[in-house]
Write a protein that binds this DNA or RNA. Structure first.
Lengths: 356, 356
DNA sequence: TTGAAAGCGCTAACAT
DNA sequence: ATGTTAGCGCTTTCAA
């Protein structure tokens, strides 16, 4: 019976021969403690396998934690809308634990906006920040400011090698490209003409997209699938209609068996072109469970989607931050999500489930 | 500033001109209260918009909740081992919140065992139960007992229409079969000879397996894929070696392009046969990320696995129960997990990620 | 550098 | 029928 009793700070204190305050100090690394006392406490902690009681902890410290979430405006882009919904979920979930989450949106295409918003966040003076570092240089600058102020941050969606965050949450892009290739190859068999389509917006995300393409191409070479012909097309016009016209033009001039698009928006734009051209037999592999993509998958235009799970990424990010703030629980440096394959037959199961 | 302050019971009590105990009594409808006092409290409650602080509530009532988890013995089956590991994770996670989870294992193949174990659970007198209702009739009987005692229960893995649980956690089996068919068809193209293999153990799970097969077959008919020939083979011998011998025999006598197996164990047994026979070119679709299945996927014998996520199911089940007991949060009646498709290229991303 | 003690909001045993 | 009060486990003054 007694073995089931939870170890309290008081128990640890008694074992270590100190007061609860001292134990609390070593647990949270606050105040001054003698090495001797610290050693005794650490030993007692170890011996008892003490686990803090979050409930008592949040109740005791009447502290309110403030987290800033910084991401592209969800109203302007369906992909980011899903991240936003994850933030919202997390906001509600942690409200009872005295965690306040404030969202800050920037314009995806406007570097100035990113800068302005990061200023706002610094003024807000949060205890920690979750952000999608879309703008490379501006992000680095912001990271500098945060570090200076000792504000921990978690990044998601896009990784920046020099970012040095508490944690990065996202996917293995190279492998993601390989999965896309595997799907196309499974569908096409042993040969075919494949187009890797790049839409203008990808310039913002150059590295992101390049990694995926690298994985995509490597799949064919590493599997000796030499009868596939793979070409890349970059559409640089910053305009949906122009992109679609150009793509349509390309498609009318050559035989294409499969298309791989590395972004969620590019996916449904491409699908729209294929749909209008009546080319449902072209194997199309793209990204994410956006409304438009779902539509074109139901329509039989898109064959496979790789799910980047923006919503879950956001939720996970907040969870990492909360656990870090409340318990000093260190999140993994990299949390790479599974590369989920969505098809016509399993798509509903993804939409119904609120699995987060 | 003050407007953000949470209303406490104490505030309500003061406003109503009574004590906190009286407020507590009307909040929880316990003890005796005069109509007059009740009215005053109700009014104050209304006026202040009081929201209880669940955290303080669970801390205050030092109640220990007991949850019984009932599932097939994890030591005897790798699939259930994963469920077991989910229970274990949840046990650790909730220990600090005064939730005690006791596991009860029954023998998958022995109906008597199920009955005995359910008796044990009733003796244990838990606050709630999580169970995998493998044995149909025995389960129904058990549900009756639980209801009689007002013990809420959540079921997972296997659904029973008449169960009427707090929540069912699992997958859409019919759709799961369709996904398997889709994968095989994608791989095979427009025609082929397909075997639906049933291993002996499936008799226990007749409904489970039948649903999957129904979905599997329906996929071909609803897509007018009439050039596929689909045959079912039931191996009724309760013995691994015998099953493999029989299957090998079948394979040697006919041309088989694809095989669908509806259980996790059947999957690696079949893979083993194909591997020994050197038939890696047969498209094999099966279930779950078991150690043996992972091995045969790396070996190139298994093409696709559908992930039922037994571990996550178990974790989710406990979470539902805890939230219900502690916070009176009502779980969804049905929580159907996504039908995750595992391939050679994305399998690692599933193994690495600790996404639960 | 340490410890005692007063909360945090709620529950429940004990008075009255 | 109602109120008082001592916890729950942790945090955080304040004193020593």
């Amino acid at each position: 019976m007694d073995q089931f009793k939870n170890i309290r700070i008081k128990d640890v204190a008694e074992l270590a021969g100190v007061s609860v305050a001292t134990v609390d100090r070593v647990l949270h690394e606050r105040g001054k403690i003698s090495e001797k006392a610290k050693a005794k406490v650490l030993e007692a902690l170890e011996k008892t396998g003490y686990k803090p009681n979050l409930i008592a902890s949040t109740l005791g410290s009447n502290k309110v934690y403030r987290i800033a979430a910084m991401l592209p405006d969800p109203a302007l882009d369906d992909y980011w809308n899903q991240s936003g919904s994850g933030i919202f979920k997390a906001t509600e979930e942690w409200a009872q634990y005295n965690v306040r989450i404030e969202s800050f949106y920037f314009n995806l295409y406007d570097k100035k906006s990113f800068k302005q918003v990061s200023k706002k966040i610094l003024d807000f003076n949060p205890d920690s920040v979750l952000l999608a570092p879309i703008q490379y240089h501006e992000s680095l600058e912001f990271f500098g400011d945060l570090k200076e102020r000792n504000i921990p941050y978690v990044i998601f969606n896009t990784n920046i090698p020099e970012a040095d965050p508490l944690s990065f949450i996202g996917q293995d892009l190279y492998q993601s490209g390989r999965v896309g290739a595997e799907m196309i190859a499974t569908k096409l068999g042993t040969k075919g003409n494949i187009l890797v389509v790049h839409v203008y917006e990808e310039k913002l995300n150059a590295m992101h997209v390049k990694e995926k393409e690298k994985g995509f191409r490597d799949y064919f070479t590493s599997n000796n699938l030499t009868d596939f012909n793979i070409e890349s097309y970059e559409f640089t016009d910053f305009n949906d209609a122009a992109f679609m016209r150009e793509l349509q033009d390309v498609l009318s001039k050559r035989t294409i068996d499969g298309i791989f698009v590395a972004t969620s928006k590019g996916t449904h734009l491409t699908a729209q072109v294929l749909d209008k051209a009546g080319k449902k037999n072209v194997a199309l592999v793209g990204y994410d469970l956006l409304k438009d993509n779902i539509h074109y998958m139901y329509e039989g235009v898109i064959n496979f989607l790789i799910h980047q799970n923006p919503r879950k990424q956001a939720v996970r990010g907040i969870n990492f931050l909360v656990n870090y703030l409340l318990f000093k629980k260190q999140p993994p440096v990299n949390d790479l999500f599974p590369l989920e394959i969505i098809t016509r037959e399993n798509i509903k199961s993804y939409l119904h489930s609120d699995s987060i």
